[in-house]
């Protein structure tokens, strides 16, 4: 996954997550480019038995001097240990001998020097981490990929793992960007103290959002997502007859009412005496005019979707609208 392999295929096993690896050598793409993937230079005893190999593999000891020799060695070192980390390692070793490691840098040499038991445990953990990473990425991949035979088969397991915290959706303006402006309107039925009932006119709730966004370098999520996503939630949780398909549908209705009521407040003659008893929503969709340089045409007449009247009770009314 990582930037690991410029030329590369020789070290199949060694793709540690070194974001910086390739990068580190980014600039001078000198010697390391060609032989990047394997560090022959720093393997003093290529023929040697495992143990000595350590010296070579452990980049740290091999690189005590940041300067001159380092450079040469560097090419060879090309790919090992995160150069980013290494600089420090070199310094560290030189500095404190092997005093306290700070946690980040251990150094291959010290790992090699661990007792066998500890090394076995480490190998086990490394394998476990590798498996966990693969499983996690596999699940996320299947979650974001189009529905396919595998993801359908393991649907339940994937969802159990992904929801709620790893949920994601990157269909950003895809497969097609939205091509219509949707505005949500609402009107209210209002009862005055004397019992008289009247209806307000339609109020464009979306206009409040748009007005906030216009000329604002940092629009609030309230304006950008509040009503817009509440409406999406409504659409996703109701059937064509405007009936909720589940409890999410009920939640969305209450949510919409609670967004609308404060915005309807200016319609009340006297908020002290008048009360909203029912509210009705509609959406107005207007297709965006096709680009002038395309020879398409589109019907840009507004299309309405009118919802039934909903009763309003105390719970639907945020304090701000009371």
């Amino acid at each position: 996954m990582q930037s690991n392999e410029p030329p590369a295929p020789r070290t199949p096993s060694a793709p540690p997550p070194g974001a910086e690896r390739a990068d580190a050598h980014g600039a001078p793409d000198g010697p390391e480019a060609p032989d990047g993937p394997r560090p022959p230079a720093d393997r003093p005893a290529p023929t040697g038995p495992p143990a000595p190999r350590a010296g070579g593999t452990a980049d740290a000891p091999a690189r005590p001097a940041p300067g001159g020799a380092g450079r040469a060695g560097h090419g060879g070192h090309g790919e090992d240990a995160a150069d980013a980390g290494d600089g420090r390692h070199a310094g560290h070793a030189g500095h404190a001998g092997h005093g306290e490691e700070d946690g980040g840098e251990v150094g291959a040499a010290r790992v090699l020097a661990l007792p066998t038991g500890a090394k076995v445990v480490l190998v086990g953990v490394a394998a476990a981490v590798a498996v966990a990473v693969a499983a996690h990425l596999g699940a996320v991949f299947l979650h974001v990929a189009p529905s396919n035979t595998v993801s359908r088969q393991y649907d339940e397991q994937i969802d159990d793992y992904i929801y709620p915290e790893f949920e994601q959706n990157w269909k950003l303006f895809a497969p097609n960007p939205l091509q219509q402006n949707v505005a949500v309107h609402a009107r209210a039925e209002v009862r005055a103290e004397d019992g008289g009932v009247r209806q307000t006119g339609w109020v464009n709730l979306t206009a409040v959002d748009v007005e906030h966004i216009r000329g604002n370098p940092f629009p609030s999520h309230i304006a950008q997502n509040g009503l817009r996503r509440a409406w999406d939630l409504y659409l996703g949780s109701h059937d064509d007859d405007e009936r909720p398909t589940g409890y999410r549908g009920e939640l969305s209705e209450s949510y919409l009412k609670r967004i609308a009521l404060p915005r309807l407040r200016p319609e009340l003659a006297d908020p002290g005496t008048e009360r909203v008893v029912r509210v009705q929503f509609r959406s107005v969709r207007r297709t965006v005019e096709p680009p002038p340089w395309s020879n398409e045409s589109a019907d840009t007449e507004p299309r309405y979707r009118v919802l039934p009247w909903w009763p309003v009770d105390e719970a639907d009314t945020p304090e701000a609208a009371r």
Partner: peptide, 22 residues
């Protein structure tokens, strides 16, 4: 070579936290 690569990879992911700046 494979063996060495494995060892090297292992030492690398245990021996240092890669990409400190990233």
């Amino acid at each position: 070579r494979l063996d060495r690569a494995l060892v090297r990879g292992f030492l690398r992911v245990t021996g240092s936290a890669l990409g400190p700046y990233q």
